[in-house]
Design a protein around this nucleic acid. Structure first.
Lengths: 331, 331
DNA sequence: TTGTACGCGTTATCAA
DNA sequence: TTGATAACGCGTACAA
């Protein structure tokens, strides 16, 4: 591995000349510049990153902290999309990205700030901290630029990016009502998750607006089997339910199973709509309608927002990424 | 940000004493050690990574190079699983991981070696280089430890990790034959992909072994719609086909659509089996049988193999990760 | 057991 | 326009 010294020797100039040439300083003649680059090519010189960092004293990395990467027994599409978007945007603006998981961080037994400093993070995009997580408070109080995914909390150095869950939920109800449904059942996500409450709120407020007086709300915990079991139960008790709105696609799949087992046909006897936009819902019979969340765009926006915060520029703390209603055979 | 100097001052010792304390040198008394750690805690001192790297001259990162992270309009489960496994294992052994995409690398206009050196990579796990990619040769000739995913090529510093595609393919045929099928159609993947050939070979050799004389092989290019169109065509021509084996799950989904449109029932009139283990295939009607590839395990194994190579230890260049036949209603 | 001093590769300040 | 040279924070022979 050749160094700046070698290049300087080879080109017959000083070390600082090489440094200047590589950092686009104006105060260097084109002739020497060319000589330097030629020598550098010959030696295939590449600036040592550690040295650059040390010398510049920068904190160059962007941290993406996700809840878990090892849940290989469930759907991870949204996580992957978030990762994709974050990565893509980070690349575009030349930000290096390091990925961590929440458990991994907790094992360090460090505070959030310590962790970021230790890993030279200029800031972090954080997914998967629960609303009740003690970690969240520490994070909000820190001066490290932070962007939260799907947790609507703001701070002096903290913004969030999310889907407008309440609006999306409300739109789902509007859609069902427009198709003539009045007796609707909502399957809740996990109670500790903030989005669960937002989706529930959206559901309730829209139901009120439409003056629906026969709605049902059942727990689902974002778990397919729980949604399945509870859907089955309620369908047996309340045979007049004509539509089900699940707070996640996975739960919608559970509900679909229950619907079939009850001898009903989704899209005919009963309407079904989910939330997320999982690909799998395109392939069921019938294909299940859903609200597509743009996690890819969320990742991109999170990166840009983080950049704003880091630069000390004014930023808007609340960022909603547009969602899309995917109409399919189930409604 | 406090430095080693501050800690030394605070603890009333020299700089090197602090360094030694933090690096578990035996030659330091427990008393001073304790004093040092106490001072370090007070100042919440954290060693500067750039400085450590520079001083030690290490190449500490593990690179994971994947084909693309931005294909948010298709299934990415395998990529995500690979990422998960790699990340998990890297964490366990304390290896920092950086993720790159092939296009991202190519835009650097550097050779493989240059790229690795530039990013201080101790080695790389590489996915998504085609068999005909000129990049592949450069990679095989380099002295940088490398593990290829799904490309069966070895080198002095290069190993690969993959599913035993030929065996899996052969097993699929065995399974279909055991169910009484004799007229089987195989849908090929993309011709440039090595796994396509392996799966085809497995299919052909098994067909020969069972002396099947009425087999069909049609292109699918790993694309759902192509598989759909070609399946439809062949089903119309050869009405006696009783089983379809698709070289990917996505194509199996296309085939399933074609089967339905032809008025046939998968699992009854015609058997269908895919390859990959996508979750979506659990939710179709009927659920589609498939060969599950353990990409999570592949990621883990790749990390370990890379470690072996990097240490200069003998390594086995060919690593096959076990696959699993998932029997479902479609067969 | 502890401390001094140099080197790692780079940037940046200040003379020349 | 160039070139010495002092940082940057740390590890480590070597000396004490």
């Amino acid at each position: 591995m050749s160094t700046i010294k070698d290049v300087a020797m080879r080109a017959g100039v000083s070390i600082s000349a090489v440094s200047k040439a590589f950092n686009n300083y104006a105060e260097i003649s084109d002739v020497t510049k060319e000589r330097i680059f030629f020598a550098a090519k010959e030696l295939d010189y590449i600036p040592n990153k550690s040295a650059v960092e040390l010398s510049r004293g920068r904190k160059p990395y962007l941290g993406l902290i996700v809840k878990d990467l090892n849940t290989h027994n469930t759907f991870d599409e949204h996580m992957f999309r978030l990762l994709s978007g974050t990565h893509a945007r980070a690349c575009e603006i030349g930000q290096e990205l390091i990925i961590f998981t929440t458990p991994q961080i907790k094992q360090f037994k460090q505070t959030y700030v310590e962790f970021c400093k230790h890993h030279s993070l200029m800031g972090a995009i954080v997914q998967g901290v629960g609303d009740d997580d003690p970690y969240l408070e520490a994070l909000l109080e820190s001066t490290i630029p932070t962007v939260l995914i799907d947790v609507e909390r703001e701070g002096a150095h903290t913004a969030f990016v999310t889907t407008d869950n309440e609006k999306a939920s409300s739109d789902a109800v509007d859609l069902l009502v427009s198709k003539g449904h009045k007796k609707i059942c909502h399957i809740l996500g996990h109670p500790a998750s903030e989005v669960t409450k937002q989706r529930e709120n959206g559901f309730i407020s829209a139901a009120r607006r439409h003056m629906l007086d026969d709605i049902h709300i059942i727990p689902g915990d974002f778990v397919e089997d729980i949604a399945y079991a509870n859907t089955k139960k309620i369908l047996q008790i309340h045979k007049d339910i004509t539509a089900i709105y699940a707070a996640s696609d996975l739960m919608a799949l559970g509900a679909l199973r229950a619907i079939k087992e009850e001898g009903l046909v989704a899209g005919k006897d009963i309407a079904l709509i989910g939330f997320d936009g999982l690909k799998a819902l395109e392939y069921t019979t019938p294909p299940v309608a859903t609200i597509f969340q743009d996690f890819y765009g969320m990742g991109r926006l999170a990166v840009d927002t983080l950049q704003q915060i880091a630069k000390g520029l004014p930023f808007n703390g609340k960022n909603f990424v547009p969602f899309t209603m995917l109409h399919r055979g189930s409604i």
